[in-house]
Amino acid sequence: MRSGHLALSARGVQMQYRDRGTGKTLLAIENVDLDVPDGAFVSLLGPSGCGKSTFLKIVNGLLPATSGEIKLHRVAKGREDAMVFQDAALFPWYSVLDNVAYGLVCAGVTRGEARRRAAPFIELVGLKGFDDKYPYQLSGGMQQRANLARALAVDSAILLMDEPFAALDAQTRELMQAELLRIWNAAKKTVLFVTHQIDEAVYLSDRVVVMAARPGKVIADIEIDLPRPRPLSVKRTPEFAVYEERIWRLIAGEYEQARAAPDAAS
């Protein structure tokens, strides 16, 4: 699975906004370097406002970075990257099958061919038999499965996931985390996963990249050395708790600093 290639290599990525009200320039992301090896599961973890979703959008090409460089591993067919959106972001006027096929349609594949190629991914994410249903007929968890299938279907080198389980209830979220690991293992994908939940990042990842806010920057890069496959019961082990504690201290420490000097960052 690990071929030694880098699926993603980011160097010195900066993002500045000009505040329309004050005219001041705000630094949203400061000098982020990140390497994601082929086949790895890497999480970007941080509080809201740390620019982790913005970074994902820059990688996806939805936003232009102010400066820096993004290199994505080229693949012979398909896109380099595919996004799994935060709110499932399915089209209410399309069936599940047409929604999952849409990424391929964007790549210029004809609708019939796109549907044919999308079908196995609907099965992979556990939505078999729901092809003709519409998004409003699905639960939140099932909508996220379709969202994931749409990104898997374009066969990209890296999967970008923007807090895909944030809106789900606690039980469904845990179930989806386990499902994601099963699918990740079956599809042999590289994943860059954005979340603000420490346990989610530790449970899923090979590496957790911790970010701090104002300006968004990387403050730690932690290898998660828990054996795979990981059943959900891993979350109840002492080793897991140690990782959680360590990351929590990092984030809490940053928070204390920011409170002590609220204007230092601007």
């Binding site: 090409g61 939805l62 896109r79 709110d87 972001a89 990424g103 964007c106 790549a107």
Partner: peptide
Amino acid sequence: RRHLEITRSFGG
């Protein structure tokens, strides 16, 4: 906006 973003995200 998020619906328009989907097309853009997948390169449509």
